[in-house]
């Protein structure tokens, strides 16, 4: 069985069995409050016999995104099982695999969107990422039909993970898809305080 955890949009967790059937699913579309809900949602689907934890690694607002990844890693550590990182857009793409070439779009805040272009499925049944995930200004005209996601299914994310495991493919690094450097400014010379 595979547990999937994703906090790139709302908070979504699910467990599927070896045949890809849903064993348990719990989610909230609330784009905030991930830290508050993650424990209760996990406890609703947690079951003995989980062999892998799929972690949705974004893109998504950083603060929320990290909560799901931290929970997924710690859950896996507790069971002594591996973490399978899956870019969250793959779940949206799998749900629209029949649509041909599409741009999966999610809000990246600061008037930007995160865009991943997929084209159907590969031999392993995994969505074909044809252009790496990137940031664009909101309102940019995209060449491909747009699928804008505000929620994603952890069941679908788990299925992407299952297919990656079956195909022996690694879809991403373990670290979150931040797409942006931390927002910091180098301090300048101290300001004068005297009049």
């Amino acid at each position: 069985m595979i547990l999937a955890v994703d906090t790139s949009l709302g908070t979504a967790v699910a467990v599927i069995d070896a045949d890809g059937r849903t064993i348990g699913e719990a989610s909230t579309p609330d784009p905030l409050g991930h830290a508050e809900v993650i424990g209760d949602l996990l406890s609703r689907v947690a079951t003995p016999g989980i062999s892998h934890v799929v972690a949705g690694i974004g893109p998504g607002p950083f603060t929320g995104l990290r909560i799901g990844i931290a929970a997924a890693r710690a859950f896996a550590l507790g069971r002594g099982i591996p973490v399978v990182p899956v870019p969250s857009h793959f779940a949206v793409a799998l749900d629209h695999a029949d649509a041909g070439r599409v741009a999966v779009v999610t809000d990246a805040r600061r008037r930007e969107i995160a865009v991943s272009v997929f084209d159907g499925l590969d031999a392993g049944g995994i969505p074909n990422l044809v252009a790496p995930t990137r940031l664009e200004r909101q309102g940019t005209d995209l060449a491909d039909p747009v699928i804008e996601a505000t929620e994603l299914s952890a069941v679908t994310l788990a299925r992407v993970g299952a297919r990656a495991i079956a195909a022996g493919r690694v879809l991403a690094d373990a670290e979150p898809l931040y797409l942006r450097s931390p927002d910091v400014v180098q301090p300048g010379a101290p300001k004068r305080v005297s009049a």
Partner: peptide
């Protein structure tokens, strides 16, 4: 807040797992 939430996510994941 953002730093605390990483620890909270991990703690909940670990506690539920175990």
């Amino acid at each position: 807040a953002g730093a605390l939430m990483v620890g909270i996510g991990a703690a909940k994941g670990l506690a539920v797992s175990l």
